[in-house]
């Protein structure tokens, strides 16, 4: 139960705790529990192994959209890349993704920025937030796909969005 012991035997034999798995997957431990309950796979002793981690990733619909170091450099490029991924991975209104997938893999300050961008896209009606069994999820509104597709890094709309989400900072959601 304690983290403090550095005895190699203890560490070697120890299984994974829920909070450790949560840290690896960048989700809250309660989400780990929720996903394992949904998959009817919550171990009685609340101790997990590598298979459980994969199960949470798969059953929870966890995706990593960004590779921290490989993410686009400028904010405008990041927004454009996000829009591109949204259109590609959410081809219709019936397809949604967990809202935290959109930010996973980014550094925390860029996650905050992108969260504002997503909130803004929801406000102007390009995206929808829906509740699914996997938690809060995002979909693209079908009628706005063309408008969203026109938002490239150099477009005035993306520039405006970046300005809005960095200067006054709409509320990070």
């Amino acid at each position: 139960m304690t983290d403090g012991d550095s005895d190699s035997g203890n560490v070697l034999l120890r299984k994974l705790r829920v909070d450790q798995v949560a840290r690896w997957l960048e989700i809250h431990p309660f989400e780990v529990i929720r996903t394992l309950v949904r998959a009817n796979a919550l171990p009685d002793d609340l101790r997990l192994d590598a298979q459980d981690v994969e199960r949470v990733r798969e059953c929870g619909g966890l995706e990593t959209w960004w590779d921290g170091a490989g993410a686009p450099g400028s904010d405008a490029e990041l927004v454009a890349a996000l829009i591109e991924r949204l259109l590609e991975r959410l081809p219709d209104a019936a397809t949604s993704t967990r809202s935290d997938n959109i930010f996973r893999g980014l550094e925390s300050h860029r996650q905050i920025f992108l969260r504002r961008v997503v909130n803004q896209l929801v406000r102007i009606g390009y995206l929808d937030i829906v509740m699914t069994a996997a938690g809060l999820s995002v979909t693209v509104r079908p009628l706005t796909r063309d408008a969203l597709g026109a938002m490239t890094a150099g477009s005035a709309q993306v520039q405006g969005l970046v300005a809005q989400c960095t200067a006054d900072g709409g509320q990070p959601g």
Binding site: M1, D19, A22, H28, P29, I33, V37
Partner: peptide, 29 residues
């Protein structure tokens, strides 16, 4: 237990919360 999970050491309070969260989702199903 919820807000500061990332910096808290797992303890009985956390485990108890896991049990109740699990119970809640089983109930919802």
């Amino acid at each position: 237990v919820y807000r500061e999970w990332a910096t808290r050491e797992e303890d009985l309070a956390g485990i108890f919360a896991y049990r109740l969260v699990a119970a809640l989702f089983k109930l919802l199903a």
